[in-house]
């Protein structure tokens, strides 16, 4: 197996690594870089749990090779919340709406929603509810029946509603 040196930025930190050509981005992020929030649910691009943001776009890290990310800027789910622990809007909305149970698929769902709604990643206008739900149809959640995820998507597509609801 050939080895390749890649240099990239992950969650704002610069990394330099030697990787095998066959190593997926997901395995690299988990095993080499230590970002275990990247979850592998199927390793064939259906479940979406491994989604990370590569150069502003939501990407299934099981379907991308680590060597392809040389020079890239990558955000994983670990890189979204503020340093003081304040959750990202997407994360907070999912918690408020009970959008997760076991939490295994959650990092992927968070990253797809963040890539589309966070101004620091998205290149277009904030998505409509329909667009957001369309993107989420590429994620499998076996626990929730998608009820809280859909409520969160509705809120994120209509940002004025965020945090206007009452809290228990």
């Amino acid at each position: 197996m050939s080895k390749h040196t890649i240099e990239l930025t992950i969650n704002g930190r610069r990394h330099s690594s030697d990787v095998e050509a066959r190593t997926s981005l997901a395995d690299f992020l988990r095993d080499d870089a230590g970002y275990t929030g990247v979850h592998l649910g199927c390793e064939h691009g259906v479940c979406g749990a491994c989604t990370v943001i590569v150069d502003g776009k939501a990407v299934r890290s099981c379907l991308m090779l680590a060597v392809q990310t040389h020079g890239s800027d990558i955000t994983t789910v670990e890189g979204l919340a503020a340093d003081d622990g304040t959750l990202h809007t997407v994360q907070q909305t999912l918690q408020d709406e009970h959008g997760l149970q076991c939490g295994f698929c959650t990092p992927g769902i968070v990253m797809t929603m963040a890539a589309l709604t966070d101004e620091s990643y998205r290149s277009q206008a904030n998505p409509t509810e329909e667009q957001l739900l369309g993107a989420l149809s590429g994620h499998i959640c076996r626990c929730t029946g998608y009820q809280g995820i859909r409520r969160a998507a509705k809120k994120l597509a209509n940002p004025v509603e965020i945090y206007s609801g009452d809290e228990s």
Binding site: T36, L87, H98, T106
Partner: peptide
């Protein structure tokens, strides 16, 4: 009887859960 936020969620939402492969 209240819809309180879950205690489990912050770690799971930030990728800090502890699953076997982690």
């Amino acid at each position: 009887g209240q819809r309180v936020r879950r205690k489990e969620d912050p770690r799971l939402l930030t990728g800090r859960g502890q699953f076997v492969d982690d």
